[in-house]
Amino acid sequence: MGMTSQRTRDRLVERLRERGIQNEAVLEVMRSMPRHIFVEEALSSRAYEDTALPIGQGQTISQPYIVARMTEALLCDGERPRKVLEVGTGSGYQTAILARLVEHVYSVERIDALMQQARGRFQELEIRNIRLKHSDGNWGWSEYGPYDGILVTAAPQQVPKPLYDQLAEGGRLVIPVGKQGEQQLLVVTRTADGYNSRTLDLVSFVPLRGGLG
């Protein structure tokens, strides 16, 4: 196993802790999740590096630190969200991390081939609380809303209105926004009076595209 061993995962978690990730539940899920099955076999030896990796179709699997940071931000009030919408299933890695921490994950992906690969990985891991849809992420997934949390894994120029609308009061939206080289990771909380937004980090994500692939 070499670079996919438990010792390698332990080292990754220690790096995440050193970078400021504090949520022990998030760290434990990151420790136990086999990231190497979410990348091509040729890249499996790099699966536990703290870096983004290509997954085909012009997409990437996010850097573990960013996955941990976004997940921690979504869970930061200590309450376990019941329903979370993920926009951009991609490899399924972020989806699987969420599924170990919340009751139900609804994930939309515009590229059908990626969605089908992710579905197979969830079956392999026996994760059964994820529902997938082949759809344009800009639309969200209104059928199961409103959501206690929404996490977006690609960057629009601005927050799509349907995502605001599908966020429950008290819910939290974690989303990268902006053009390449100028993206900010935002946390938007819906209140009785509207929406509060704060910036977590400067980030670099693939753009959130419309249409189906």
Results as ranks from 00 to 15, higher is better:
G140E: 06
F38T: 00
L101T: 06
V39M: 13
Y93R: 05
W139I: 09
S32L: 15
A154S: 09
E28T: 04
S91T: 05
P64K: 00
A113I: 13
R172W: 03
Y164P: 01
E79T: 10
V206D: 02
R172D: 04
I111P: 01
G120S: 06
E28D: 12
L74H: 04
G194R: 02
L98E: 15
W139K: 15
A25K: 14
Q22D: 13
E72D: 13
A99Y: 08
L16G: 00
N196G: 11
R46G: 01
P176S: 13
V84M: 12
D77W: 02
L202C: 10
E41Q: 11
P34D: 08
V188N: 05
F38M: 11
G56H: 06
V203R: 11
E40G: 09
M30E: 09
V174T: 03
R198D: 13
R35L: 08
L53S: 01
K83G: 03
A99R: 06
N138S: 13
A168H: 02
Q184F: 08
R172F: 02
V206F: 03
E79R: 06
V152N: 02
I175V: 15
M1N: 08
P64E: 04
N138T: 12
G90Y: 01
W141Q: 14
I37L: 14
L75K: 00
K161P: 04
R82D: 09
